[in-house]
Amino acid sequence: MSTTTPVFHMLAGAPDPVAPFSHAVEANGFVFVTGQMPFIGTGLDSGYPEGIEAQTHQVMKNLTTVLEGCKLGLEHVVQVRVYLTDFERDYDSMNTTYAGYWPVGRRPARTCIGVTGLAKGALIEIDMVAVRPTGA
Rank of each mutant, 00 (worst) to 15 (best):
D16I: 02
K61G: 05
G47E: 05
G51I: 14
N62T: 04
V131G: 04
V7L: 12
Y101A: 12
G47H: 06
H57K: 14
H9I: 09
A109H: 13
T5Q: 11
N62E: 03
P49D: 05
W102Y: 12
I113K: 13
L118V: 10
I52T: 01
E125M: 12
A119N: 10
K71M: 11
T42K: 08
G73D: 13
V131F: 13
T64H: 11
F8N: 08
W102P: 03
A27V: 14
C70Y: 10
V115W: 10
V18C: 06
Y83Q: 11
F8A: 13
C70S: 07
G51D: 08
S2M: 07
R132A: 04
L123C: 02
H23Y: 08
Y91G: 07
T3S: 15
E68S: 14
D127Y: 00
S46L: 04
M1K: 07
S2C: 04
R89A: 15
G135F: 07
L72M: 10
G121C: 09
L74N: 11
T134I: 06
S93N: 11
M10K: 13
A27I: 11
Q55W: 01
A122V: 00
P6H: 14
T64V: 09
A14D: 03
V77H: 03
Y48P: 00
T56E: 02
T97S: 09
T3L: 06
E125V: 01
A12I: 11
Q58S: 10
V115P: 00
P15N: 10
Y91A: 15
G41W: 09
I52G: 02
S22K: 08
T85D: 05
G69S: 06
G43I: 04
G135P: 00
P6L: 09
